[in-house]
């Protein structure tokens, strides 16, 4: 009564849990739609969006890209350590990944604080509505990711660490698309 192999094979190939991939694809759809909406609304008001973009902090965001991809490799190495049952190394890599996640949030916090000091809020301009929605939603994922990485570090097991790392890579993935579209493309 087992299923024929041809039908389960593709899913068996998928590295990591099926559900985390459902989440990754869903998040990509959400952020993809958000970025598409951003560009579509931008087309109706290029000057306004350019002015808004000038107020952003591309250098801080570029730094954050480096922080996040480095954190990503640490999470991947943690998963590898967990697989090899090297618990100490696994925890160390997770702590490193989490610390960089916190750095990302601190840098992000400075960006928000500076914008707020200039009196720029969610409703200031459509560009800022998107900016706050997209980066805020992403930052919420970073915060959640730090928490998840911390949780799986407690009782280090290969499967939870791998799943948490996959979540973390998704956060990474979203950021490398978010960053150029919102901060850089003029």
């Amino acid at each position: 009564m087992t299923d024929s192999p041809t039908e389960t094979e593709p899913f068996d190939d998928l590295p990591g849990d099926l559900m985390i991939w459902v989440l990754i694809v869903s998040e990509l759809l959400v952020f993809g739609a958000g970025l598409a909406a951003f560009l579509a609304v931008r087309a109706t008001d290029p000057a306004g969006f350019a002015t808004a973009q000038a107020a952003l902090h591309p250098a801080a965001a570029a730094l954050n890209t480096a922080v996040l991809v480095t954190s990503g490799v640490a999470a991947a190495l943690a998963a590898r350590s967990a697989e090899a049952a090297r618990l100490g190394a696994g925890r160390l890599w997770l702590a490193f990944a989490m610390a960089l996640g916190v750095v990302f949030l601190v840098v992000k916090g400075f960006e928000y604080a500076d914008l707020a000091a200039q009196g720029i809020g969610v409703e200031s301009h459509a560009a800022f509505t998107f900016y706050y929605l997209l980066t805020g939603f992403h930052a919420a994922h970073v915060a959640a990711g730090v928490l998840i990485l911390g949780l799986v570090a407690i009782r280090l097991r290969p499967y939870p660490v791998e799943t948490a790392a996959a979540f973390w890579h998704m956060v990474d993935l979203v950021w490398v698309l978010l960053f150029p579209v919102i901060y850089l493309m003029g």
């Binding site: 759809l29 959400v30 958000g34 909406a37 969610v122 409703e123 929605l133």
Partner: peptide, 18 residues
């Protein structure tokens, strides 16, 4: 409610078809 709900609502509810 604040206007950003228009985008949150539009994007997420579009996915409700999935």
């Amino acid at each position: 409610t604040p206007a950003y709900w228009q985008w949150i609502g539009s994007i997420f509810s579009s996915l409700e078809v999935i």
